[in-house]
């Protein structure tokens, strides 16, 4: 068991989410930065779809009741065990009653806590990813207890991480279905402008502050994906993220590659970004 002493700013259990259920209006969900989340599981020798904790900006304080192994990946939130700093991207042994806590945010936005065997919280439609109206809990709360696997035998995977994927501010994208509706000024603006992340960013979408002059109408509701960049009637660009709705009515002008989505997951308010359009 893991006791939640403090929940942190916004901490959720995530796995690979609910692929293949979008035809029911169910969002895909899953770890915002899937690269970092997968890395933690790989380092521990867990299956890739093992549930981890995604923590945002301010980390939780967690007490482990029994010995296990953990791994912290993604953003650097100055993790420590029993007030001793611990390194990221490596296996950390945990003893009974150890306290895991976090400090200053040094880089990125979201970190992942992987635990040997994974967090065993409630499943909905075959995934533990927390989502409103699907799982009972939508984020960690104070005094929650999280069941974890009671495995204590670590399969020494000898995986050594020399470097991790850096957060990119230049996002690789392909044309979206409505890209061709843009005029040449709009197209030039999109590939040449440095955009800024607004204070409106969450697991559903990241909104950018810079407005694009726009006269495009809405479209007939059609499919959208995580990584779809929409253009609203007032000229705002919205990057859809893992918890996005399955359909939308704004023109879909770009589609981010998977690695770019992972990078956006680590960008906070006022971060700069640009689009590198792959033809």
């Amino acid at each position: 068991m893991v006791n939640v002493i403090k929940p942190g700013m916004f901490s959720t259990v995530q796995d690979k989410g609910r692929e293949g259920l979008q035809s029911y209006g169910i969002p895909q969900s899953g770890s915002m930065d899937s690269f970092s989340s997968d890395l933690g599981n790989r380092i521990l020798g867990n299956a890739i779809d093992t549930a981890v904790l995604e923590i945002t900006m301010v980390g939780p304080v967690l007490e482990f009741e029994s010995p296990t192994f953990i791994c912290i990946t993604g953003a650097d939130l100055s993790a420590s065990v029993q007030n001793m700093n611990i390194p990221m991207n490596t296996v950390i042994p945990i003893k009974s009653n150890d306290i895991l806590s976090f400090g200053a945010l040094k880089s990125g936005l979201r970190a992942y806590i992987a635990v040997l065997g994974g967090f065993k919280t409630e499943k909905a439609y075959d995934s533990r990813s927390m989502y409103k109206n699907l799982t009972k809990a939508i984020k960690l709360s104070k005094n929650d207890t999280l069941e974890i696997s009671n495995e204590t035998l670590f399969s020494d995977s000898k995986l050594i991480v020399h470097s991790v994927q850096e957060i990119q501010n230049e996002l690789i994208a392909t044309k979206g279905p409505e890209y061709s509706m843009l005029n040449s000024n709009q197209k030039n603006f999109i590939i040449s402008h440095d955009f800024t992340v607004s204070n409106n960013y969450n697991r559903m979408a990241v909104q950018l502050t810079d407005l694009l002059e726009n006269n495009l109408d809405s479209i007939i509701t059609s499919a959208v994906l995580p990584g779809t960049v929409q253009l609203t009637p007032n000229g705002t660009l919205i990057i859809l993220m893992r918890d996005c709705q399955t359909t939308g009515g704004y023109p879909r002008i770009l589609q981010l590659e998977e690695r770019a989505i992972n990078s956006v997951a680590q960008l906070k308010k006022d971060s700069k970004l640009s689009f590198n359009l792959k033809i």
Binding site: S23, Y24, G25, I26, P27, N133, L134, T221, A223, Q245, T246, T247
Partner: peptide, 8 residues
């Protein structure tokens, strides 16, 4: 079709 919210 279904979309917008789960079950809509």
């Amino acid at each position: 079709f279904l979309g917008f919210l789960p079950g809509f």
